[in-house]
Each structure stands twice: as C-alpha cells, then as structure tokens.
C-alpha cells in the first residue's frame, strides 16, 4: 500500500476527537444492531421510530433545566436521562392505548409518538437558543463525543448485550411466535416490556450519535442485512454487529475526506452494506 493511501485511511484518526467519535459510534452501533434484530424480527420498526421521536419532550425539559441563559452547554447526562424517561413514557403510552382500545399496534404507536413530538415542539418553542441544538437533536452530534461519551456507550453496550444474552431464549420464543411462547411458559407481557426497555435504551444511545431522524437506520439496516445472510439468530446478530462496528470508522472516514455530516455518513455506510448484500443475494431474498 502506498504511503498516500495509508495516510488517506489514518489521517482522520490521528485526531483524538475522531477516534473517540469512532469508538462511541461503533459501540452504540453494536448495541443498536443487536437490539435491532428483535425490532426487525418482531416487526417493530414504527414502534422504534415512535420512540426515537418520543424522546423530544424529555430532551427539551432537560435542556430547559440545565442549559445556561444562552442556550448553550446543556448537561449531556441530563439530556440522556430525559430522553430515556420520555422514551419509556412513549412505550408505556403505546401499550396503554393498545390495552384500552382495539387499534392496531402501528396506529397506537403513531398516536403516542405524535403526542410526544408535538409536546416536545411546544416545549422547545418556549426555550430561547434551542434552535442551535435542534439540529443536533435531529441529526446527532457524534463528533462532540468525548471520553465520557465513549465510556457511557461502553457501559450501555455491555449492560444491553448482557440483558440480551440472559433473555435470549424468551426473546427468541417471543419473536418466533408469541402464542407458542406463552404455551411454553414464557411470561410474554413481561418479556415484551423488557424488550421495549432495551429498544428505548438503544434508541436513546443511538439518538445521541446520529440523531432522532437517523437512529432507525442504525436499528434496522445492519439487522436487515444480517437476516439476508444468516440462517440462525446468533449469526444474524454477529453479522449485524460487525456491519455496525465497521460502518462507524468508514462513515467517519468518508465524512472527513468529503466534508459530509458525520452521523448521516455512518448510517449511509450501514444502509449501503444492506443494499449491497441484497443485490448480491438477488432472488434469494
């Protein structure tokens, strides 16, 4: 390999903030990819999208409490906690609508998310200076990731992967057929609720990196690519985690050299991997 080519690949990563961004995005990518397998298998894409937008009021309230008078330097941990709480409220609201009405899951998720989104926008309209940060809410700010963001992502990733390992059999049974799972003694409602918590954590972690509009790409594209190749769920998880982990540095590389938005570049690489695999697999999809 020529020196120029080596430089092309290594230059961006000589900067500490790019390395931290790559580590954070890769960890969050793996987290989203593994949880995303169950989003894909259970057909929960709209539910996940609803959670991604439902975090807005929590983010707005955390911003109002912690940002200074110029609307700058909000507390990242408070934003994360606010997003997590609002996400769980959205999930619980969706479940409540489903229990109390005969609407289907898509409609219930959409009603809950539109309520949370409009509440978030109303709150934001009361905050001066939020316009600057609204951009990072929609598209994330992966390059702002510092060492503590990488550590937070590593902790979240470890906790969520451990939870998936512990709940693997019930989650597999639930995803395969909820009725069969119940007949085999799985406490379906409890496992469904725990899955919602895992998806919420993944959405919040992903939203901090790529924003609420693009987090769905991290949840869906790598698992969808994995489903095209793998014959078994562990294989699907491994392939999708590998695609997510590689998408982070590749996306940042493209972003560095082509001067593109970092978060969007990462998601674009992951979705391109899916498209490439789909084309190669051709009629076997």
């Amino acid at each position: 390999m020529e020196q120029a080519e080596v430089d092309f690949l290594t230059d961006p990563f000589s900067q500490e903030f790019v390395v931290q961004a790559a580590i954070t995005a890769a960890l969050v990518g793996v987290l989203c990819a593994v949880v995303g397998c169950f989003v894909v298998l259970r057909g929960l894409a709209l539910m996940a999208d609803s959670l991604a937008h439902g975090v807005l009021p929590g983010v707005a309230i955390a911003f109002m409490i912690t940002a200074n008078s110029d609307g700058l330097e909000p507390d990242r941990l408070a934003i994360t906690a606010g997003a997590l709480i609002a996400g769980l409220v959205t999930a619980a609201g969706t479940s409540a609508i489903l229990r109390r009405s005969r609407l289907n899951a898509d409609t219930a998720a959409a009603v809950a998310f539109v309520f949370m989104l409009s509440l978030g926008v109303v709150l934001i309209s009361r905050v001066e200076g939020y316009a600057v940060d609204l951009n990072s809410f929609l598209f994330g700010d992966v390059l702002a990731s510092d060492g503590s963001a990488a550590i937070t992502s590593a902790v979240l990733c470890t906790v969520v992967l451990a939870a998936v390992a512990i709940l693997y059999r019930p989650l597999l049974l639930l995803s395969f057929d909820a009725r069969r799972a119940a007949a085999l003694g799985v406490p379906v409602k409890t496992i469904e609720s725990l899955l919602m918590v895992l998806i919420t954590v993944a959405v919040v972690a992903g939203f901090l990196v790529v924003g609420s509009l693009l987090v769905l790409g991290m949840l869906l594209a790598p698992p969808a690519a994995g489903a095209l190749i793998a014959r078994r769920l562990p294989g699907m998880m491994l392939i999708s985690a590998a695609i997510a982990a590689v998408s982070a540095p590749l996306g940042l590389l493209a972003s560095w050299h082509l001067d593109l938005a970092a978060g969007a570049s990462i998601v674009l690489v992951a979705v391109s991997a899916f498209i490439l695999i789909a084309l190669v697999r051709g009629s076997r999809i």
Partner: peptide, 13 residues
C-alpha cells in the same frame, strides 16, 4: 396451533 405465521426470513432452522 392451527397456523403459525413466521416471516420467511426469520433466521431459524
């Protein structure tokens, strides 16, 4: 059950 609806792409043998 009488029927079980599993997506053809569900990765399980």
């Amino acid at each position: 059950p009488q029927e079980i609806s599993v997506e053809p792409m569900f990765p399980i043998t």
